[in-house]
């Protein structure tokens, strides 16, 4: 049997997604509560952002609208991980209860099969919130608009999303090696809230860490420089799509390696 093509996986995902949405709609109360939760979370995030700028005019040479741009950018970049990879949060439970093994018996990619099980529609609210913020700040900054900018925007947003997905995969796969790994995932989840600040505020050691070890700087700072300050784009910004792919690939390998190792010892 030959390897399955991308088209094959796409078709399967679409089918599962359509069914999943249908069944989700029948649990309206849940949907409403979690959407409200999502809105509250985003509003609360925005309020703390706003309070900060009530007291301080700028941070490290970054003005209010520029920071708002970073903020909106990070929200959009964090949407795919929310929508498509949310099952990572359940991984720990599946592994401890032994239910994880059921994912291993299908003739399709284990990682895909696991992640395809959950689609989180709530992420869309966050996406719209981020998009609004981005357009508003874009407008206030008078950045102008061209097709090329839009293209850049899309490419760099996708790279930024991949970085966050990679971080979450890596964090989730911790449960294959350690018990009580919730803290790892929770920690990464907390760190992503700091993606919206320019990495230049950190000292060089931590700038390095946030660029190469826990690459949150690639979630908003590096990619958005391309649009935000086109005159002073560092090399790393241009490289961010490649960096994103590399990180994603590594995290995927780690995840799969963990899954195989778990089967060797677990339950």
């Amino acid at each position: 049997m030959k390897r399955k093509s991308l088209g094959f996986y796409f078709r399967i995902y679409r089918k599962i997604l359509a069914q999943d949405l249908k069944s989700k709609m029948s649990y309206r109360a849940d949907f409403i509560i979690s959407t409200i939760g999502m809105i509250f979370t985003n509003v609360a995030g925005f309020i703390s952002f706003w309070i900060l700028f009530q007291n301080f005019p700028s941070i490290n040479g970054w003005g209010y609208y520029e920071m708002l741009f970073l903020y909106g950018f990070s929200l959009i970049a964090l949407t795919p991980v929310q929508c498509f990879f949310d099952n990572n949060w359940n991984l720990r439970m599946r592994v401890y209860s032994g239910d994880f093994i059921k994912y291993c018996f299908r003739p399709i990619n284990l990682f895909f099969y696991f992640q395809s099980e959950v689609f989180d529609i709530k992420g869309i609210g966050q996406f719209l919130f981020g998009l609004g913020t981005l357009i508003y700040s874009w407008n206030m900054l008078g950045l102008g608009f061209s097709a090329l900018m839009l293209l850049k925007m899309i490419v760099f947003l996708i790279s930024a999303s991949l970085v966050m997905i990679a971080l979450q995969n890596a964090a989730a796969s911790a449960c294959f090696w350690m018990q009580n790994s919730f803290f790892v995932l929770d920690f990464i989840n907390k760190m992503k809230d700091y993606a919206k600040y320019p990495v230049t505020i950190f000292s060089s050691i931590f700038r390095f860490i946030f660029t190469f070890v826990i690459p949150i700087a690639f979630i908003a700072y590096y990619p958005s420089l391309v649009i935000l300050r086109p005159d002073e784009v560092p090399l790393l910004s241009w490289l961010s799509p490649i960096v994103a792919l590399v990180f994603f690939f590594l995290s995927y390998k780690l995840w799969m390696f963990g899954a195989m190792k778990y089967n060797g010892t677990g339950a």
Binding site: M1, K102, F105, P107
Partner: peptide, 17 residues
């Protein structure tokens, strides 16, 4: 693994797949 998976079916009582 995946080729083998095509040839087999697995059922765990109590754990639905």
């Amino acid at each position: 693994r995946t080729r083998n998976a095509q040839n087999i079916g697995v059922v765990f009582g109590q754990r639905t797949q």
